[in-house]
Write a protein that binds this DNA or RNA. Structure first.
Lengths: 134, 134
DNA sequence: AAATTAATGTTATAAAGTTACCTTGTTAGC
DNA sequence: GCTAACAAGGTAACTTTATAACATTAATTT
């Protein structure tokens, strides 16, 4: 998505999107709720509804293995996002790799499967937190 | 794991493993609990603990995007498992693909990352449930 | 048999997500 | 301008998923 700036978001959508943008890592729904209580939000559903629509707009992703959400990187992606997650510092980076996406297609087609929503989340240690021995 | 048969499991581990083996799809923790109440299990924690140890023994996998667990296929895998999940009939197949695993390694190494737990779960439609038009 | 470690049992609680129902805004057609 | 139709929002209650805390029992090692 190139023109996030030009998206017309509703009040709740904008609040949730802003909060996610400013975070340095993925944020959980109840954390978002806590933050946004100051802006008048009161119930989980308000958060979940905003998240759902932001995902539909393709400006937010859900991280399945973290139960958390993050803004989409700017890459114009037709291919599926790949998340690289540091279990030490919590940093998450979004990558696009067409090679990996091709492998996924090949694997699924091989068994007559139609891939609609590939989830790739790689847990480990980032460079900064890397295995002590180095 | 080649010799699941030779594993010495505790009572609860064996019950949970049996239940998962007999299921045709991944099963949630509370479903397992319901089934195993007949065998005397009473609390969620008994299930979660058994699952945790079975995962450590590498005979069970957790499907992050389903909040459910399934037995590991027999493949002797050093590489990460790839799950292909039909959102229609619920069928899940475990694949091993060293090519995809190499891509994951490449992507992570490129950014100085050490991959420890790659999660790949591909949602879509299996051959039998495939897009209506065919 | 004592020591150590692995597995269990139970209660209570936390965290994540959904259902149901009703109200308010916005927009389009008349 | 009125109103039908629809999208977005508000609120409460509830379900589902997962853990914490603490006490007990079984198995294994020395």
């Amino acid at each position: 998505m190139r023109d996030k700036q030009h998206l017309k978001l509703s009040k709740n959508q904008a609040l949730v999107y802003e909060a996610l943008s400013q975070a340095s890592k993925p944020v959980g729904a109840y954390d978002l709720l806590d933050q946004l209580k100051a802006h008048g939000l009161k119930a989980p559903l308000q958060i979940y509804r905003a998240l759902e629509s932001l995902i539909e707009l393709k400006v937010v992703h859900r991280l399945e293995s973290l139960n958390a959400w993050t803004t989409c990187c700017d890459a114009d992606h037709d291919s599926a996002p790949i998340f690289v997650i540091c279990d030490d510092c919590g940093d998450v980076k979004e990558h696009i790799d067409t090679g990996l996406n091709r492998s996924i297609e090949k694997i699924s087609k091989r068994s007559g499967f139609t891939a609609e929503r590939p989830i790739v989340e790689i847990h480990g240690r980032c460079g900064d937190c890397s295995p002590k021995t180095n």
